[in-house]
Every structure is written in structure tokens, then in C-alpha cells.
Design a protein around this nucleic acid. Sequence first.
RNA 1: GCGGAUGUGGUGAAAUUGGUAGACACGCUAGACUUAGGAUCUAGUGCCGUGAGGUGUGCGGGUUCGAGUCCCUCCAUCCGCACCA
Length: 930
Amino acid sequence: MEYNPREIESKWQSYWKNNATYRVSLDLNKPKFYVLDMFPYPSGAGLHVGHPLGYIASDIYARYKKLSGFNVLHPMGYDSFGLPAEQYAIQTGQHPAITTQQNIARYREQLDKLGFNYDWSREVRTSSPEYYAWTQWIFRQLFNHWYNPVTDKAEPIDQLIAQFETEGFAEEQRASLHGGIEANLEPFTAEEWKAFNEKTQREILMNFRLAYLGESYVNWCPALGTVLANDEVINGFSERGGHPVERKLLKQWNLRITAYAQRLLDGLDTLDWFDSIKETQRNWIGRSEGASVHFPLENGQGSIEVFTTRPDTLFGVSFVTLAPEHDLVHTLTTLDQKSAVEAYVNSSKNRSERERMADVNTVSGVFTGAYVLHPFTQEKIPVWIGDYVLVGYGTGAVMAVPAHDERDFKFAKFFSLPILPVISPNQEHDFEEGAWGTKEGTLINSGFLNGLAVKEALSNMLDAIEREGKGLRKVNFRLRDAVFGRQRYWGEPIPVYYKDEVPYLIDEPSLPLTLPEVESYLPTEDGDPPLGRAKQWKHQGLYDYEQSTMPGWAGSSWYFIRYLDPQYPKGLASKEAIDYWGNVDLYMGGAEHATGHLLYARFWCKFLRDLGLVPFDEPFKKMINQGMILGRSSFVYRIVGTTTFVSKELKDNYTTNPIHVDISLVDNDRLDLEGFKAWRAEFQDAEFILGANGEYVCGVEIEKMSKSKYNVQTPDELVERFGADTLRMYEMFLGPVEQSKPWDTKGITGVHGFLKKYWKLFHKEGTFEVTTTEPAKEHWKILHKTIKKIRDDLDRFSFNTGVSTFMICVNELLEARCNHREILEPLTVLLAPYAPHITEEIWEKLGHASGSLCDATYPTFDPEFLVESAYDYPISFNGKMRFILNLPLDYGIDEVQKAVLEHKDSVKWLEGNIPKKIIVVPGKIVNVVL
RNA sequence: GCGGAUGUGGUGAAAUUGGUAGACACGCUAGACUUAGGAUCUAGUGCCGUGAGGUGUGCGGGUUCGAGUCCCUCCAUCCGCACCA
């Protein structure tokens, strides 16, 4: 019987489905293991070979854990809200729910063909109302909680209200707040609080809520009619569609992720993730330590607060710069400067992010006419405006020290402002040429800091600032609060309605607040989001609902919890399920979510932890990021002005144009000539100038997979031709799973050949035949060597070397003509995670008529079988290996040395010299030093 | 500019703790069986050299009996961030 993957695979796929082989349930007698794939967005294009790479790796690992006695949770679902379905709806009028449903069906079909061990009874879809009811529920909690900096956790807003009613809001409490809470919030007494009307009270509380309505600059994309997150904007263009993006001040729902900045940073140290991702998150959170310092206005009307990481250079301040959007710009500008300032502020407002980014080197700014006083010297310091200062970072104002900061230097040079060195560099430096930005040197011109090294000056100055009430030590984060509203249709409705323009939450029993039907998915004529078209959609028939929907990352920020108990009607998941399954032990997915999904999910997890809803602080303990699979495009070379195509090696003899050719017409870079002519009408009369062997050789380039480049490889055709087991093993064989690599089917025959050889081990002249006789020592050795290596490779996620190990094992067993059941049966279990179909078939043929191989036990390694009495020592002379010498392993160092020197080949390499030293590492190597 | 990663045959790669560099596979070369199968089997295949041998892990140094692996300098490529005070 021939190995027939198509027959075997459909047989076992139905078996697994009919017997619910992969369904798992809570089992307190077994240790749990949670393996999770980042769930896909079901796009219309279906899966290409890049998608399953991570799924295959996690599937192998999940099966390995299962066979090792763990109760393994391995679920799958769909991140099914998103812009593409909405765009499609705008073009065609088809409801996004229908498109999404169709795409999911296609994904499911493709996934099923690859033989994954997902427990599909646990499927979640972020767009289903049963699921997003709980996404909305979490929003309610965020709205109803604030971050208490004293206890360092989220607490019910009712507790804060109770405190306001008894104690009011004191200045000291205001000072201790952090995490984006408005700095200009005025203190009030309990009596004052009680006297406020409801609207005022709610406005004050909005400053504390973790989900809050706030005015902020957003990335507005006019073409898409929506706001985009920073990570959805690439160089001033939308990630999707490539439309221009501009800055716009908008009232938006925000999540106060900044309250969790420190915890998000600290948590990274506990995670088993790649350093690159952790480092990216650290940079994104961007913690910097320094001080906020007040510069009193010359006219006595308040002060400008700046943030600096270099308070040691305070005596070198020659001006203060405000961001154009800074609140004080209008009040402090003098009459003479008014028109110049207004012109500048307006021009920078109209300058999009894109333009500002494009010319980083252009200096622009304007003098306000106002002055502040230096906090220590009382000298007059001019106040300027410059758009190199960002309103969203620090206080939106900087103290400019041109001698020691490159940007301040450029600004000072451009406007001929004074440059005052306050650090004497420890090497040659010209202060006319540039800033001395490093923290090395000795303080000069700096009053009480003179003579100190920078480090000492820093701490002295910080002490002085606090002691003299000029400011405070402060930690600043680059991280901004996350905008939580999108002007789109296909997302979770935000469970809020408005009464007198004040937002109120929908009651918990009324959730989910489902999406209304609309006749078009475009923004309204008035510029309202698509939900504005649902005129009858009102709370209790009276009050307008919020018209924004949640961003794409809302549903994906907690889906890993829903899988634990996906149908639970009374909460995110039952307590028993959460306590048993806990957080994710292995998370598999792309590295592109480093600053999006992975940060938001960690934030929500910490919040839910604060509420006591989950017992863990981090959602994903270990993560592996699979590399991207790139396309391998093929080219033909058309001689200009003809329909003649020339083989690659001859193309330089002609003037040619390269043309992308569909990779299905190319095998090992050789073009299928007839197929090419039939491919497109314009090529039907094509003629070819062939190269050696009468073949047409195509050119090759590595590019992203894309329809227009004809280089998309879907898994379907490969599964059809070679089977899922071959594709699974081949994707693993390509290289380390975390590495990006071009897709290339060249090697797939090698892996397919391996499975055929494995099949051949059990068959003699077409019939299944294994012997129950006792295997030879050599056979046991091959098996246990393989068990050890396979387990080691799985434990370090080295799937590519695992495949090689199986190849070596099967080659050796064929060579040794081994068909002993005692060897081949454990080998079958060992291989099962990689190739689940063929091994099930063999398992059945081996006589396990009932039950699945999935219930077997993974073979364990017994070192007994590998014990050797002798070893092939590589003998080196001066570090160069010269010959192999087989010696007993119980030889002592002296005996080894003696044996080496007595060997006939040693005479040649000694060249009559007496060795200076002979290094013997028992069981490893011998090195003779001459 | 900052941060992270990578650099090994014609190709994908392996070498887990400093110990035989190139396992495994593709491709290629030669052969066997056959005559259309995208099959199977055998042998060879880093480079130079007929050979003995020499040489070889981006470049240049260093540590070591011994370096792909550790240290220093430089180069190249990829990814992320980027006026962050």
C-alpha cells in the first residue's frame, strides 16, 4: 500500500471531528497547560502559507504537552471586527456581518485541512454580541474605576466619591496624582463638593475615571473618516489604505493606560519574551526621570512648569520654549508679538504630522515677548514658541540649554540666542559647533554646583529644587493614554448614552448594546460616524447613544480569558475556570503587535487583577514570535517591443523588461512554457530563447506576498499535492520558527520523501508488516537517541532540528532494516505532534483499533540504551583535527595520552618534536600541543 | 540618531556548556532501474590542489591548548522607535 495522504488525512480529520477528540474540560487531577495562538482577522484573501507557521509550531507543542500528561487548552477564534469588512460594505452595501461570516467559513475550512488540535467548541468571535457584551462590561468597569496612586491600584469610583463627600479633595492629594489626571484640577472641600450640581460633579470625576471622555489631539484620517492610533499611522499615512493623516483636536473616549505605565514596565522583567519585544515596549513606555521646575512669570501672574531630565544644567538656561498648543501661549504673549505668534500657531496647526516629520532639520519658532525669571538667579529669560516642543509630552514646555542639548542648540543658533556652557567637557569641544550632550565633565558657571561632576550636580540640584520649593522630582512617561473611540460602524458600540451632554453608562442587565442597522456605512453628511444614521437608536427612546465604536484592539485585549469558559453567562468566565486554567503558558504570534495588542492586553489584565477578577498579573507568560514568511517572486524577461522572452542567464545580451510571472507556472525556477502561454491572452504567441538544457530559467526576488506580484502561495494547493503532514513538517523544516524567511517550495519534496520512508518502515512489498521479535541493541540506541533529541528540541522550540532528527532516525532504521514493533511504535508517538494524520493511521494499523493516538503517552528517554564503552576521540595537533582514534571510555588521562602517542599517525604530525603538553578532555577530545 | 537582531557552501540551514565546522534537506554531477513517474535506489558534492596537503564561519585584532561560539574595533543587512526635553 502506497502512502496516500489525501485519503488518510480526510479520514482522520473526520474521526477527530466525530469523536470530539480535541475537546478539553476542567480536570483537577491533571496539570494544565494553556497554548494560545494570536487569533486571526478573517480577511477576504484567506490564509497564505505564512499564517500557519505559528499555528503549526504551537500545535506541535500543544500535542507534545498533551501526550506528556498535561490537560492542554488550545483554543482558536476570530478577531472579527475591523476595517476591511467595513470598507467592503461601503463599496458593495453588503453587511459586514455577512462578509465576516463568509470569511470565517473559508478560514475554518483551511485550518481544518491542516489538522490542528483546536477545541473548536471554545471558539470566540469578537464581533458576536454574546462576546462583546463582556467587552462592554469591562468598559463599564473602566468607567467606574479610578487609579489610586497611594494603593497603586484601580479602585471603585464610589469610594472616591465617598471620600469627596467627607474630606473633599485636598492639595496634597492633587500633588500625588499621576497617570494623565488633569494637573489643573482645583482642590475643593467636602461642602463645596456637595454643593456642586450633578453635571459639575461628573465633570470632576471624569478626570479620574480609567475610561474617560477627554479632548486630545488625534490622528484624523479624512479619507477613512476616522481616528487612528499612533501605531496605525505610518509616516503620516494610514497603515490601511495609505491615506494622509492630520492632527485634530477631538473629544474622544480614552483609556488611562498611563496610570499603569510603571506596572507595565516592571512586569516586563517577569516575562519570558524575546528581548526585542520587551525592549520595544520599554521604549514605547519611555520612562525618564528628572524634575518639574517652575519658572515664575516676570509679571507675577503664575509660572511656566517645565520637565527636564538634566536639572544639573539649570544655570545654562538661556530661554524657555513652549509648544504652539500650550495653554499659556495666548495669555502671556505681548501686544507687539501677538500677530507674529498667532501666525506661527496657526501655521503649525495646519502642518500635518507628516510635514513636521519630513523636515526634522528645519528650525522654526517665534518670540512671545514675555519673560520668566530663573528660579535660582532671578535673571530674565525670554519665552519662545517652537514646534519642536510637543504638547503631549512632559508639560509641553522646555527649559532650553543650548550648550548641552542639540535641539536647543539648533534653535539658539538659528535665532542668535545666547549659548551658555555650564559643563566643562573632559575633552576638546567647540561650543560654537554643537552641544555637549553627554553627562561627562565638571560644572562651571553654576553657582553652588561649580566644581561638581555631572552626577553629583544632578542629585545636588534635585535636592535644592525640592528644598527651595522650585519644583519636584518627577518621572515622565512617553506613553500616552489610549484613544478608545473610532468613527466606524463595524466595532463594539460603547455602552454610553448622553443626557444633557453628560455621558451615562448603560445598565449592566441591558448589555449587550447591539449594533443598529444602518442604510449606509459611510459617515453622515454632518461628519458624524455611521452610527449617526440610526435615527431611531436611542436609550429608552430618549437619549442619544455614543456614536463611536471601540477600536480593533478592544476585543483582543481579553479574549484569552473568554476561552477559559466561552459560554459562561454571568461573567468573563467562571471563577473555577479562571482559577484552573489561569494565564497563557505559551503565546504564539507575530512580533508586529509589540506596541499594540500586547501592551493593551497586559493593561486590561492588570486592571482585571486589581478588580479581583483574575488571579494573575500578566496574561502571557512565555511568548514566541514567529517570523514573517516572505514571497519569492519569479520573473520572465521580455525583450523590449516583442513577445519574445529570454532565459535569465542570457538576458544581459538583450534589452529586456522583467515581468512578474505566476509562481504556479514555475518549478525550481524553470518556467512551464505551455502554461505561461495559456496564462494570459497577451502571451499566447510568446516565443522563448531558452538557456542550457533547453529550459527557461526565471529570475527571482524576495518580496512581501501580494496578489499583484503573483507570489502568493496558499496552503491549499500544497496540502492537495503533498498532504498536511508534509506541509506541517516542511514549514517547520524551513528554519527557526522565529526567523523571517522567504517562502520556497524547493525543499518540500525532501520532507515528503521522509514521510514516505517512514511509511516504508512498516511495509514490505506493499503490505503492512512489523515484527514482535526483540530489537537489536543498535535499534534501541537509534530510538533513544532520537527520543532524547526530539524532547530537547521541543523543550527549546527548535522545531526545525526536530524534523532533521526524525529524518536521521528513519534513515538509520531503514539502513538497519529495523521493523520491530518495540522500536516503531514509540517512534510513531514521538512523531505524532509533527505529523498527526499519518501517525494515527499507523497507530491504527499497529492494532490500536479503538481510541486515538492523542491518548497515548510520549516516550521517555532511557540513558541505559546509550551507554558506550568506547569513544571515537578526535585527535588534534595544535588545535587541528588530524585523525580519529577509538579508545575505551574508562581509560584514564595517562592511558589516553599513551595510546595517542603510540598511534602510527602521530609520528607524522609530531615531526620528531616532543609535545609540550597533551590536553585530554575525557569523552570529548585530545589536543597535542607542539 | 537611539534600541534590538542577524551575518556560516550554489540554496534553506545545523553545531544546545569554548572541544571533529557545514548535520539534515534542496540543488547539482555521475550511475542503476525504467521508458514519461513531480517515482525509487547507489556514489559524489565548502573552496584551492592530480595528490600529500592547504584553506575556510562579514573585515581586522585579542583571550585560549583549542573560538562560528568569549572580548575589542569596524562593515553590511533587517526590524522597531524617532524633535521625548
